[in-house]
Design a protein around this nucleic acid. Structure first.
Length: 311
DNA sequence: ATGTCACGCTGCGCGTGA
């Protein structure tokens, strides 16, 4: 095998060398404009060294994305699948574990009124990644809210039509799955992100076989991923958990760590969202998946690590 | 206490989206 003729394989080797012993780090981050966030994104990639990164709210057309980032990402070993538009929305997948079979959007998915750049999928090292930016919904009586529900149904259908066990759906779902995922549930009654139909649509997505791996690992912990820019909300830790990593069974069984990188929300020029990072243990075949754990391996085993969050 | 950011503009402060 000649590595130089196989850039995908070479990227996979690089990832293994970079992170050690085959463990794979995946992440999602709503960057709120990749152009504005470049001074935070590049150092974050260098510090956290994720192997697969899903971005949302890139707010950049694909040619501009390539022009802005191709060199910096290529130098770090990443291949890129970007699906954006000029001003709003926009999603991407960065991978140094291979990047194949890229698909944009959702088959048969709704538009508002036209399809928006809110989903991109790719196969990276044997796992199917879907980077999603779920519509906000605005208010529960709005067309945008109905669009949100229809969009989630189309996402569920797409995942169900694939191979859910080796799928990872990650991104900004604009839904707090439970009241524990909101700093003040009473303050949000009647607003989007917490209504029953939204939570039911999210549950329907998960019912195809996806695990909320951050909540599974920290069942009782106050953990948020988004804090409004205003009024010192982050400083007071008044946020919501609306950025999720949802994985199929085979992936969930390999989760070694799952945490929110609050450091990235601090300091100068942050996004209003923090990245979510999940480490997966090595797959026995040396690829990153999919792997069904042997019967003797309890699915609950995981070398739980202390959450590396800042005070 | 409606507080911040980012977007684009028959732009130079404002409406819109989050």
């Amino acid at each position: 095998m000649i590595a130089s003729a196989l850039p995908t394989v070479a990227g996979s080797v690089l990832a293994t060398v970079a992170y050690g012993k085959g463990r794979v780090r995946i992440a999602t981050w709503n960057v709120n404009s990749v152009k504005q966030r470049l001074p935070r994104l590049l150092p974050w990639l260098d510090e956290r060294r994720p192997d697969v990164v899903c971005l949302q709210e890139t707010k950049l057309a694909d040619d501009a994305f390539a022009q802005l980032l191709a060199e910096e990402l290529g130098a770090r070993g990443y291949e890129v699948a970007a699906h954006g538009e000029a001003t709003w929305n926009g999603v991407a997948i960065l991978s140094r574990a291979g990047l194949d079979d890229v698909a944009v959007g959702l088959p048969g998915g709704p538009g508002f009124p036209h399809p928006e750049a809110r989903a991109v999928s790719a196969t990276c090292g044997g796992l199917r990644f879907v980077s999603v930016y779920v519509p906000n919904g605005r208010t529960p009586d709005s067309d945008h809210y109905r669009y949100k529900l229809a969009w989630l149904a189309a996402l569920r259908d797409m995942v169900a039509a694939g191979d859910p066990t080796s799928t990872v759906v990650l991104g900004d779902v604009n839904i707090a799955p439970a009241d524990e995922d909101v700093f003040d549930p009473e303050a949000y009654v009647g607003q989007t992100h917490v209504t029953a139909p939204e939570r039911e649509a999210l549950a329907a997505l998960q019912s195809v076989g996806l695990h909320d791996v951050v909540r599974d690992r920290w069942p009782d912990k106050r953990v948020f991923t988004y804090w409004d820019y205003r009024a010192g909300m982050f400083h007071q830790d008044l946020g919501m958990r609306i950025d999720l990593v949802l994985t199929g069974d085979a992936v969930a069984a390999r989760v070694a760590a799952a945490w929110v990188d609050r450091q990235a929300r601090k300091g100068k020029g942050p996004s209003d969202h923090a990245p979510v990072i999940v480490d997966l243990d090595d797959a026995p075949d040396g690829d990153i998946g999919p792997v069904v754990p042997p019967p003797s391996a309890p699915a609950a085993r995981r070398g739980a690590k202390k959450l590396p969050q800042a005070p």
